[in-house]
C-alpha cells in the first residue's frame, strides 16, 4: 500500500479512501475530521464531524449548534477505528483544542498536522511530535525569513510603548480565535492587570476560553458607552484586524495601531497596513520550528500544504527527505 492510497488530495480536501473521510475539507462532505476551529479548516455543513471537544464547542459557538449532522468527540491520544482505519488526535499547540490527526492502516502511518507551533502557549496544550512515515506539514511561514522572536519580548515592546505614550489608545489587532486570547494572557503573564477592552467579535470566544480555565483577567467591551473617547486613552484595546481599517477604530483617541501576527516580521507588510507597532506573535511554526519538527517526527516523506511549499520542499531535498507539495486550495490562514 502506498501512502497516497491512505490519504490523497481531492478538491474538497485531504481524503482517506479506505476510511471514507476527509481531513479539514473546504466543502461539505459526509464525514469530516477537523484539526482546529479556524474558519478555513472548520466549516459548517458536514454530515459527521470528528474533532476534539474544544474544537466541536468552538464550531458550535461560531456556526450555531446545528453546524453538522452529528458530532463525534476525539479524545487526545485515543486510537479509534473509522471504517477500519486507525485514527487518533494529538495536541498541535496552535490554538485551544487544536490537534494533529494520525491516520494508520496496514503498518503505514501518516500524520496530518493541521496548523501547529512549537513554542509554549499558555492558552493551549503544547505540540507533541508523533513518529510517522509521512508527515503532512503546513508551510504558512515556510521561508527562512520567518523566525519569530521571543513572545515575552514582543509583549514587552507593547507595554513599553504604553508607558511612552500614556495618552494614546493602543489598538492591538489579533484574530479572534486563539491569537486574541493569547495576547491577553501574555499581557497578564507580563504583569499587566488593568482592564483590557475587547471588540464585540471577541466576546464569546474570550468567555469560552475563560470557561476552559484560561484566566484572561478583567475584560470590558470597547463600546463608546463605556465613557467616550477619553476613556480609552492609555488603554489596550484588542480587536480583529478587519475592524481596524474601519469606522470602529475612529472611536479611539490618537491610537497606536499594533498588529499581532507573524507577518509583521516583514517591514513592508507593516507599512502597507499602516501598522505603527508590529508585534511578531504567531500561532504558526516559524522556519526553524518547521524544519526541527520534520526532523523530530522521523518521517521519511514530507507532504507540504498551504503556504510557501517550495522552500520547505527544497530544504527536504537538501536533507535527503522525500518531499512534495500537496497543492490543497482554500486555506487562507485565518489564524495568522
Amino acid at each position: 500500500m502506498r501512502p497516497s492510497d491512505l490519504l490523497q488530495p481531492r478538491p474538497q480536501g485531504l481524503y482517506c479512501p479506505p476510511g471514507d473521510f476527509f481531513i479539514d475539507p473546504v466543502k461539505p462532505v459526509g464525514r469530516a475530521l477537523i484539526t482546529h476551529g479556524h474558519a478555513d479548516h472548520a466549516r459548517a455543513g458536514h454530515g459527521t464531524v470528528m474533532a476534539t471537544r474544544e474544537t466541536l464547542e468552538i464550531m458550535a459557538i461560531r456556526y450555531g449548534e446545528g453546524f453538522a449532522g452529528s458530532r463525534q468527540e476525539a479524545r487526545l491520544g485515543e486510537r479509534v477505528a473509522v471504517n477500519g482505519v486507525e485514527v487518533s488526535f494529538h495536541p498541535a499547540g496552535h490554538v485551544l483544542g487544536s490537534a494533529q490527526i494520525r491516520v494508520a492502516q496496514g503498518g503505514r502511518c501518516i500524520v496530518a498536522s493541521g496548523d501547529y507551533k512549537r513554542r509554549r502557549d499558555p492558552t493551549c496544550l503544547g505540540f507533541e511530535p508523533i513518529a510517522c512515515d509521512v508527515f503532512i506539514t503546513e508551510a504558512t511561514f515556510g521561508l527562512p525569513v520567518f523566525r519569530h522572536p521571543d513572545d515575552a519580548g514582543e509583549i514587552a515592546r507593547l507595554l513599553a510603548s504604553l508607558g511612552q505614550f500614556p495618552e494614546r489608545t493602543h489598538l492591538v489587532g489579533a484574530y479572534s480565535l486563539g491569537k486574541a486570547q493569547r495576547v491577553i494572557r501574555l499581557l497578564r503573564d507580563a504583569g499587566y492587570a488593568e482592564t483590557i477592552y475587547i471588540h464585540g467579535a471577541l466576546e464569546k470566544l474570550c468567555a469560552y476560553y475563560e470557561s476552559q480555565g484560561i484566566a484572561l483577567g478583567p475584560l470590558a467591551p470597547a463600546t463608546i458607552d463605556n465613557g467616550g473617547k477619553a476613556a480609552f486613552a492609555g488603554k489596550i484595546v484588542v480587536g480583529p484586524p478587519s475592524a481596524f481599517a474601519d469606522r470602529w477604530a475612529r472611536r479611539f483617541s490618537d491610537p497606536v495601531s499594533a498588529f499581532a501576527s507573524g507577518w509583521m516580521r516583514i517591514r513592508q507588510r507593516a507599512k502597507q497596513r499602516g501598522v505603527e507597532l508590529p508585534l511578531i506573535l504567531s500561532d504558526h511554526s516559524d522556519w526553524d520550528e518547521l524544519v526541527a519538527t520534520i526532523a523530530d517526527t522521523g518521517a521519511s516523506e514530507v507532504w507540504v500544504t498551504h503556504g510557501r511549499e517550495e522552500a520547505l520542499v527544497r530544504w527536504c531535498e537538501i536533507n535527503g527527505i522525500a518531499a512534495r507539495p500537496l497543492h490543497l486550495v482554500g486555506y487562507e490562514d485565518e489564524g495568522d
Binding site: 521561508l143 527562512p144 525569513v145 516583514i266 517591514r267 513592508q268 510557501r308 522552500a311 527544497r314 530544504w315
Partner: peptide, 16 residues
Amino acid sequence: RMDPVLFAYSYDYVGD
C-alpha cells in the same frame, strides 16, 4: 552560509 535557492526564494519574497 546558506543555500542559494533558499536565499533566492527569501529575497524574492522580501524584496529588500
